[in-house]
Structure formats: structure tokens, C-alpha cells
Design a binder for these strands. Structure first.
Length: 607
RNA sequence: GCGGCUGUAGCUCAGCGGAUAGAGCAUCGGUCUUCGGAACCGAGUGUCGGGGGUUCAAAUCCCUCCAGCCGCACCA
């Protein structure tokens, strides 16, 4: 029944954050170039050199630790491999480890290497970060071209919470890839083609162009679609007109195309409003909808035919990739041409793969699409590989995500059982943030307050979506996500605003180039270690295509800051110490701001 | 039936082969004449869905069972 392609599905579950251990990853992609090496990379280099001498190819398994700052867990497996006692191997490793200038090493337990970083080394790293706008993250040495398919709303249909997930996750990944030094090509695969357009265009004709445009331009897309659908189901004459209209559309009839363009233009203008409200980077030129591939479809089928892959089945032309069976155990088809000779979305998706690899030169294809599309995409990849359009050198990932659930833990629906409009949720979040701001004494103007409320609301909604592991479903709970305490976007913004406020109150100038880091207290040291872990968190988050890892890191950093903030006065202490603490604040503020920006979240200076 | 995802504290969730499983919320108790209290500190609770297996080491990998959600050709 639902007809327009629903790429971004609704539904899924979720999760939390914690202390620094979660940051560490084995085999992180190296930060290849840049003005400085990240703390993790420096440590890993030294350890790898020592491990290499004893067991070539072994992994030190470097992780954050609560026993030291870091721990290397690789000794035990190396010992096993060599058939020697682990402690003995650890001794030998430590003996050959050139690391005294950066850390102290202690062998513990069965053979763990606990590493405690020297203050002098931390100072070096902090000074580097202080003057590095990239906060220690290097640009990729080998930039790749990444095509990210995300958002994908449908023409003449409302954007709902499922589109929220695709849009927010896709946008965060796009920002992260760009920051990493890669070239991102965003592809907003808008549903602007297909049999539904017969009915939509006829409905437009019935309403009259002006009335239809008025209806669409106020964002009343759902009722437009619903009314068209109702007529289609109830009225055989209308149904017949719709079918005829589809044929005209596909035949390129100018008048039909003109009417179609009205629907597309009005919808695209509406999408642009939603994107602006969400503050996502998607631009009009990123919209490359299904219709774009229309002219390539016949060619796709021809290519498949020439490759000898086509099979006729029930009058339709299909490809049967190996390994996919239906509920009767029979092979499952990818139908590339229907029995009425029309094309379906599979053909469009194949054309898109071909276009993105062949014409755009993509090194990597990402599909930020709901989890239920998984099998479909797998089959598309399989056929594309069979056809030679998708070489092994091109990485393809389905960046799947779970559903957004309502309070009842079922698919998020309004009281009347309809899908929930995305703009409605955003507006409600803005209202709540605005009301909360209004209760605090502030000298903000109405306009300033509304702007701030919008920033907070976006942070609340986006962070709630991003901070959970993608594949899980999560419950959309506005109260929880907009709370200013706990693991929320507004909490992170607040931490940042407090930091900025310190600098506003700073009366005398301070010289960042002449700061000495003593890190005398635990809170200062913990904060320093926190900021220095940013490159790891970023690399891990990007490599796994899991923005929630960056969220977990930022929340941990914010907590380290507030602990520091309680324990360590900044402005009221004398210069050497004051400047050190100011520097820590400066680095922390910039790291929070940068990290949030990579998630598509703004960090206002005051709130 | 086949395939996919999920199952960790009262609730929402981190934990991606390592040492005593961690956060937030909620609860209880503290701090504070606030560099912005939208804060901080402390306390408690766990058959990591069950059962096998691999491993020096398993919430984590493999198998199996249970529960929930989702997908499986002419809609996209």
C-alpha cells in the first residue's frame, strides 16, 4: 500500500556513554599527515617497534586504562605465540622499549604493560594542540572520494522521523569525512519518480495548479498525498487517468513533465526549509533524485543482458544473485524490468551504483538507509559486482539504522495513527527550549532567545539520535533529550558556554605561547588526557561509521571539564597557574566546539 | 521456512578478546556567600536473555535455544 519509496525507515533501540576506556581502539587508522602526531599514535609507534622486534606483525593492543593512562595487552598473545612465559616476554619487551621520554612502563598481572605518560610529554602534546586548529587530527594522506546517500525524502510526502535519522547520521558522517580531508559527494536520492506520480499529477490537475501549489508550499504534503491516494483507491476513472499519466510522464510528454516539475519544485523548496531548520549541510545541488537515473535504465538492462545475466521470470526481466532465497527456498530476483516493461527502484539503484563508480569516481559508497533495506541493498551490490560495475577496490557500506519508537516502544505514530511530521517535532523542541530559556533571567532579546532556543533544540534532537548506536531502535522522548542535565546535547553546549564565559571575564591578556603545563592536580591531568584523546575518538568514530563514539567521547570530556571546573579555580589564581588552566580551558572549549560541529551541532558562546 | 537486527542496573544506554562490567536518569545523602547550580562529590542495586564451545583470558568470537522487531519479485 505505501507506495512512494521509503528509504529511510522508521524504527529501532539505543544506548549510553562512559569513561575513557571506550575511546581506545586497536588498529586505528593512523593519522597520516599533519603538524603533530596524536598521543595515541606516538605511543603506538614506540610499542610497535618493540613488539616488532620480538614478534613481527604482532599488535600491542593499546587501550586506555584505569591502571595507568594506557595499557598494552598484546604481550600475552605474543607469549602464547612464542611459547614463552608472558612475564618473561614482557620483561624483554620493556627492555627493548624506547619510551622513557614519554611514559613510564610497569608490568602488571599476567603481562599487561601499564603506561603512565610523563608530564613533559603531555606538555609537548598540549602545546601542539593549543596551536593546532585541528586539535591533533591530521588530514588523510590518501584522500578518498566518498559518495554518501542520505536523507532521501519523497516528493509530495511529508518528512518524518525516519528521515531524521538518515539526514542527521548522514550529515554527521559527511562532516566527519570532510574534516578528515576526504572529498564527500552527498547524494540526496529523493523519491521523485515512479508510478505514484500518475496519481499525484492527476490530483494536482484536479485541484488546480494554484491551489495545489498553495497546499504544498505550506508544507501540507501529507494531506495532498493522502487525498490523491484515497481517490486512486476509490475512483476507477481516476485510477485509469493516473495510469495513463504515468505513461505520459515516462514518455517525456512536455505538459506532464511540467506538472511533475511543479510537484518536485514545491517539495524541494519544502525540504530546503526543513534542512535549514535542522542545520544540515545538504544543498539543492545534492538532490539527485530517482528521475536523474531515468535515462540510464534501459542501458543498465542492456548491459546486464549483454553480460548474460538476465533471466525472464513471469514476464519480468530479473537477475538472480547467488545466495538469496525467499520463503519458499527459491532464488530471489532483482527485478530490473517489470512485465509491463517499466522499471522499478532496483534498476534505479543499479544505475546509481554504476554512475557513482564510473562517472563520479567514488572510492567508497555509503547508504544511510533504514535497516529494513539491508537485503535489498545486498542484492543490488551483488548484481552490480556481477555486472562489473562495483570493483572490489570500492568499499560499499549500508550505514543501517534502527527505528524511532514512540513512548509505547512501537513505531512512532501520532495519536491518530499517522506518521509524525519531522518539522512538528523540531518546532516542539524549539518551543520547549525557548520556554526553558524564558524562565531564566537573561537579557536576551526575543529574537536572540529564539535563535538560541533553535540551536539548543537542534542539539537536543540531533545528539539524542546520534548518541545511540545506529542499529538500535530508540524511543523518541523529547523530555529526556532536551534535559539540560545528563548525557544530552544541551549539557555539552552548556559546558562549552561555561568555558567561554571564563574568557569573557578575563581582564588581563594572557599569552598562550608561553604556557607551562605542570598538571599538578588529578583533575587537570584527567582533563589533559581527555583532550589529547580527541584524535583517537574521531578516528574510531569515522572508521566504524558510528557517530555515537564521538558523542561518548565528548560527553566524557565535558564531565572531565566540569570536575576540573569545580576543583580548579582559573581566574582567581596567580599567573603561571592561571595561564596553564586558561590553556586547558581553551583547548577543551575548542575541542568541544569542533567535536560538536562534526556532529552538526552548534556550540553557542552563551546560553 | 530463510535472512538481518536487538536482548547489560529500576529506566535509557556505553562497554568493538583483557585485569574488580560502567555512565546518565531516578532514589538517598552531601558540597556551595556560583570564574554561569542548566554544577559538583558520595552511596546502592547486575544469573551481561539461557545453555554449550573456542581461548592463558569471553558481555565481546563460534554453535544452539528463547524473546522482541524487521525483510523476503512486478509499491518504492
Amino acid at each position: 500500500m505505501s507506495s512512494v519509496r521509503e528509504r529511510s525507515c522508521l524504527h529501532s533501540a539505543s544506548s549510553a556513554r562512559t569513561s575513557s576506556q571506550v575511546i581506545s581502539r586497536p588498529n586505528l587508522p593512523r593519522c597520516e599527515t599533519g603538524t603533530m602526531d596524536s598521543t595515541y599514535d606516538v605511543l603506538l609507534d614506540r610499542l610497535q617497534a618493540a613488539f616488532e622486534r620480538i614478534a613481527p606483525g604482532s599488535d600491542p593492543v593499546l587501550r586506555h586504562s584505569d591502571r595507568g593512562d594506557y595499557q598494552a595487552n598484546g604481550v600475552m598473545s605474543v607469549a602464547k605465540q612464542l611459547g614463552r612465559p608472558p612475564r618473561e616476554v614482557a620483561q624483554e619487551l620493556v627492555h627493548g622499549l624506547e619510551i622513557a621520554d614519554i611514559a613510564e612502563v610497569e608490568i602488571a598481572g599476567p603481562g599487561f604493560l601499564n603506561l603512565t605518560l610523563n608530564t613533559a610529554f603531555l606538555e609537548d602534546q598540549l602545546r601542539n594542540v593549543l596551536k593546532d586548529p585541528r586539535m591533533g587530527v591530521a588530514n588523510a594522506a590518501h584522500p578518498k572520494k566518498i559518495v554518501i546517500d542520505y536523507s532521501a525524502p519523497n516528493v509530495a510526502k511529508e518528512m518524518h522521523v525516519g528521515h531524521l535519522r538518515s539526514t542527521v547520521i548522514g550529515d554527521a558522517l559527511a562532516r566527519m569525512y570532510r574534516f578528515g580531508g576526504h572529498q564527500v559527494i552527498a547524494r540526496n536520492h529523493v523519491g521523485d519518480w515512479g508510478t505514484n506520480f500518475g496519481m499525484l499529477i492527476e490530483h494536482l490537475v484536479d485541484l488546480g495548479e494554484q491551489a495545489a501549489m498553495a497546499s504544498l508550499s505550506i508544507g501540507d504534503l501529507d494531506s495532498f498525498y493522502r487525498d490523491a491516494r484515497a481517490k486512486f483507491d476509490a475512483d476507477d476513472t481516476f485510477k485509469e487517468r493516473s495510469r495513463t499519466r504515468v505513461v505520459s510522464l515516462q514518455a517525456g510528454d512536455p505538459e506532464t513533465r511540467r506538472l511533475w516539475a511543479i510537484l518536485v519544485d514545491e517539495s524541494v523548496a519544502y525540504f530546503a526549509e526543513v534542512y535549514a531548520k535542522l542545520d544540515v549541510t545538504l544543498a539543492p545541488e545534492d538532490i539527485v533524485g530517482e528521475s536523474y537515473y531515468n535515462d540510464m535504465l534501459a542501458d543498465v538492462v542492456t548491459d546486464l543482458d549483454e553480460a548474460g545475466l538476465l533471466v525472464e521470470s513471469g514476464g519480468a526481466l530479473c537477475v538472480f544473485p547467488a545466495g538469496f532465497t525467499n520463503r519458499d527456498g527459491e532464488p530471489m530476483p532483482v527485478m530490473v524490468q517489470k512485465s509491463d516493461e517499466g522499471y522499478g527502484y532496483s534498476t534505479t539503484d543499479l544505475a546509481a551504483v554504476r554512475d557513482r563508480v564510473r562517472n563520479l569516481g567514488a572510492d567508497e559508497l555509503l547508504y544511510v538507509v533504514g535497516a529494513p533495506q539491508g537485503q535489498h541493498l545486498e542484492m543490488i551490490y551483488a548484481v552490480a559486482r556481477m555486472a562489473g560495475w562495483l570493483p572490489d577496490s570500492v568499499r560499499v557500506e549500508h550505514v543501517a539504522f534502527g527505528n524511532v519508537l514512540g513512548p509505547d516502544r512501537k513505531m512512532f505514530k501520532s495519536r491518530s495513527g499517522e506518521t509524525v511530521k519531522l518539522v512538528g517535532l523540531l518546532d516542539e523542541a524549539i518551543e520547549r527550549a525557548d520556554a526553558a530559556l524564558a524562565t531564566r533571567q537573561s537579557n536576551l532579546s526575543e529574537a536572540e532567545r529564539h535563535h538560541l532556543a533553535t540551536q539548543i533544540a537542534r542539539a537536543a534532537v540531533k545528539y539524542a539520535d546520534l548518541s545511540t548506536e545506529r542499529q538500535r531502535d530508540y524511543v523518541f522522548d523529547l523530555d529526556r533529550m532536551i534535559a539540560f542535565e545528563g548525557d544530552t546535547g544541551p549539557y555539552l553546549q552548556y559546558a562549552h558556554a561555561r568555558l567561554r564565559s571564563i574568557f569573557r571575564r578575563l581582564e588581563a591578556a594572557w599569552d598562550p605561547s608561553d604556557v607551562h603545563f605542570v598538571l599538578a592536580s588529578g583533575a587537570e591531568r584527567d582533563l589533559a588526557l581527555g583532550v589529547l584523546a580527541f584524535p583517537e575518538a574521531f578516528a574510531s568514530s569515522l572508521a566504524s561509521l558510528q557517530p555515537h563514539r564521538l558523542c561518548v567521547y565528548l560527553f566524557d570530556l565535558a564531565q572531565r571539564f566540569t570536575t576540573f571546573y569545580e576543583a580548579c579555580p582559573v581566574l582567581s589564581v596567580a599567573p603561571p597557574l592561571r595561564d596553564e588552566r586558561l590553556a586547558l580551558c581553551e583547548i577543551t572549549a575548542r575541542t568541544l566546539s569542533l567535536g560538536l560541529s562534526l556532529l552538526g551541532i552548534e556550540a553557542p558562546d552563551r546560553m
